[in-house]
């Protein structure tokens, strides 16, 4: 079957891409100046040698690479350098779900918000709702995320103290309340982008021939809107959703830092600052794979939704 062949081909390509990513990261990282084993307190030569042996850093780089690859094929990312008793696999398993939940929610907010606002602004083009929403959209696009995150937190604190109850938790993770504000902040930029996209694609369609025909045939507006305009306008939004999911899930550092959320992004930044080789490798390869397969998934999905797209 064509579809199966297409998926297989894409998957094989994906595996190769992941291998390339692993290789690139491995050598990029080992070329980073600095010494991952150093700590505040200096080590004697003897102790240092013991530590080096423990992590296999005493072997030549080529050997290390081969060992790494063979571990990778078994799905073993190794042991963290800074968190000595912790498997990188465990770290990913513990923290990725957090980032993923945050990301999924952010994408949902962005998609639902973007489609609704976009449709609304297109319907009321050049009138007050349009201007109002577009103003916020522009704000969402043009203010750096860390400023929005800090302001968001400030708003919660002041709101809570004004109300005298904890309506939304200020930071942390673990309940429904914890996820709402951070994911909204995280999804804001994407939502703004999607609103614009949705608006312009709605406008393009409203002046298209088939909508005109439908109007001429006297179809009820609600029906035209639902069957023709909205449905077709959503398609381009779905295409960008795939990359958006990946970008949001891998790009949540800022929100995770500001809201004290135990996600994988925070771990990565920490790991880079500590030159924690195995965690850096593990995170990058994992996210790389995630990204690659997400894109494949969306492509396949898109092919299924839109009959015009041929699987080639």
């Amino acid at each position: 079957m064509a579809i199966a062949a297409f998926i297989t081909k894409r998957l094989i390509q994906g595996v190769f891409t992941v291998w390339f990513i692993a290789t690139a990261t491995f050598f990029a990282m080992h070329n980073v100046p600095g010494d991952p084993l150093l700590n505040e307190r200096a080590m004697t030569e003897a102790i240092r040698a013991n530590v080096e042996a423990k992590y296999g850093l005493d072997k030549p780089l080529g050997t290390q690479y081969l060992i790494y690859l063979s571990n990778l094929t078994r799905g073993d990312f190794g042991i963290s350098f800074t968190q000595e008793n912790r498997q990188v696999n465990d770290i990913i398993r513990e923290h990725f779900p957090v980032s993923a939940i945050l990301g999924v929610l952010a994408v949902l907010f962005a998609a639902v918000g973007g489609i609704l606002w976009g449709a609304l602004t297109a319907l009321y083009r050049n009138r007050i709702p349009d201007y109002l929403i577009m103003f916020f959209v522009i704000l969402g696009i043009s203010v750096p995320s860390f400023v929005i995150a800090a302001l968001g937190q400030l708003v919660i604190v002041n709101m809570n103290s004004a109300l005298g109850i904890t309506l939304f938790p200020v930071a942390g993770w673990g309940t429904l309340g914890h996820m709402l504000v951070p994911s909204m902040v995280l999804g804001l930029g994407t939502m703004a982008y999607l609103t614009r996209l949705m608006r312009s694609s709605m406008l393009e369609i409203v002046s298209s021939d088939y909508v005109r025909t439908a109007k001429a045939k006297g179809l009820p507006p609600a029906r035209i809107f639902a069957k023709h305009q909205l449905r077709n306008a959503i398609l381009p939004v779905i295409t960008v959703l795939g990359p958006a999911i990946a970008a949001i899930t891998t790009g949540g550092f800022v929100v995770e830092l500001v809201f004290a959320i135990p996600g994988l992004g925070r771990y990565f930044v920490q790991a880079v600052q500590q030159l924690d080789y195995t965690v850096i490798m593990g995170t990058t390869v994992f996210y790389g794979a995630f990204l690659v397969f997400m894109v494949i998934f969306v492509d396949v999905l898109y092919g299924l939704i839109d009959p015009r797209v041929r699987m080639s």
Partner: peptide, 12 residues
């Protein structure tokens, strides 16, 4: 999701 979230965090 709020049920899933409880499994990944907690404490607060």
């Amino acid at each position: 999701l709020s049920f899933v979230v409880k499994l990944t965090g907690g404490g607060a």
